[in-house]
């Protein structure tokens, strides 16, 4: 019984994560500037990668017929945790570089970060 619940919860997370990933990719394609696209990339990374990886680990826990299913579950969970650390850090570093080197053209009404750094 508990295995069935785990399996179908994991499957739901996997498919919902796929939908979120598709939404994030559409956002990345349609948004006008780099700083707006960062927002869509976050959706693609957290909801589109961390959530389905937890789903995969639940699916593996819920299917005891697969040899070594606990290994698959643990490894997927560890991958999800690592992505939770890595993805925001990568976006932060990229945004920092884009703002510092002024390689992205944008027309903001006000740029608070630049004003702070000029002081």
């Amino acid at each position: 019984m508990i295995e069935q619940v785990l399996f179908w919860t994991g499957s739901a997370l996997f498919i919902i994560g796929g939908v979120f990933d598709l939404l994030g990719s559409i956002g990345l394609l349609r948004f006008p500037s780099f700083y707006v696209r960062l927002h869509a990339a976050t959706i693609g990374a957290i909801y589109g990668a961390v959530l389905p990886l937890i789903g995969i680990s639940l699916i593996a826990l819920g299917s005891p017929g697969i040899p070594g299913n606990y290994t698959i579950a643990g490894a997927s969970f560890v991958t999800a945790l690592i992505l939770l650390v890595v993805a925001p850090m990568g976006s932060h570093v990229l945004a920092h570089a884009a703002h510092k080197s002024k390689s992205v053209s944008w027309k903001p009404f006000v740029d608070m970060l630049e004003e702070d750094e000029e002081k």
């Binding site: 990345l28 780099f34 693609g44 990374a45 990668a49 995969i56 990568g90 976006s91 992205v104």
Partner: peptide
């Protein structure tokens, strides 16, 4: 620009990490 390309390749890689587990 370069940050756009790198952001897209990153998202592709996160996507494919899910995929390799699957």
């Amino acid at each position: 620009t370069i940050p756009d390309i790198i952001l897209a390749v990153d998202c592709l890689s996160y996507d494919l990490a899910v995929f390799l587990s699957a």
